[in-house]
Design a binder for these strands. Structure first.
Lengths: 112, 112
DNA sequence: CAATATACCTTGACAGGCGATGTATGGTGT
DNA sequence: ACACCATACATCGCCTGTCAAGGTATATTG
């Protein structure tokens, strides 16, 4: 494993919402785009991914519909809701805050 | 709750190790220093803290001994081991890497 | 026609965080 | 004297998110 998944834990929802801010997309493609973005260093496991979709839909952050593919496997598309966009913004703000906090907490400083 | 604990999850060990890099310390004081550093925005819950101590000691990252207080409640002091210092450095490196990766993953970009 | 890629989904185990609760000591206020 | 609070440690049991393992179905490729 290249990166401990506990470091990513808590960001799964944000990552998915971010991928839906631009346009609707389906699970398999979303996951591929995540792998590409990290140069293969990270991927959401399928079980994690689909669990997250259920969770986000339940929470009203995303909505889903079946695509009408003429060929190939069926695809379930997801679209982000207004509430989802709000959630995304909130999560982004939390991340900014948490990032600084973690930096401060794991730093070894002289003035103890 | 000011900060979602899942955002901190995975950093608990690093935070504790960082607090022990300078000098030995005991649980209660470590937790207070964490609260002070974040201006009260974050604290490790006691259950989390002591669970982490067990985990880290088990892993050989820290060692513990009872302080010889003449007064007040007894204190269990922890000191970081060589292995613990190595682990700390590794965790710091992972964090740097993960930080950039998360930033990239939760960002909304045009080129999708 | 077997293998591979695409695409979805569920179950059960596991690990970490934490609320609740318990122990014991010593100082402070009334 | 007695209640209360701060210090200081510890454990139990629940909850939640991750994920290995397994399953379904369709289309392409050698």
């Amino acid at each position: 494993m290249s990166i401990a998944s506990d470091l990513i834990r808590g960001h799964t929802d944000t990552i998915i919402l971010a991928r839906l801010m631009g346009s609707d997309n389906y699970g398999y493609e979303i996951n591929k785009s995540i792998q590409e973005r990290t140069g293969g260093k990270y991927e959401l496991k399928e079980a994690t991914l689909y669990t997250a979709f259920r969770r986000l839909e339940q929470a009203g952050c995303i909505a889903s519909y079946w695509g009408n593919e003429q060929t190939g496997a069926r695809r379930r598309y997801y679209s982000i809701t207004e509430s989802g966009r709000d959630t995304y913004k909130t999560l982004m703000a939390e991340w900014k805050s948490a990032k600084g906090m973690i930096d401060q907490l794991i730093q070894v400083e002289e003035n103890e």
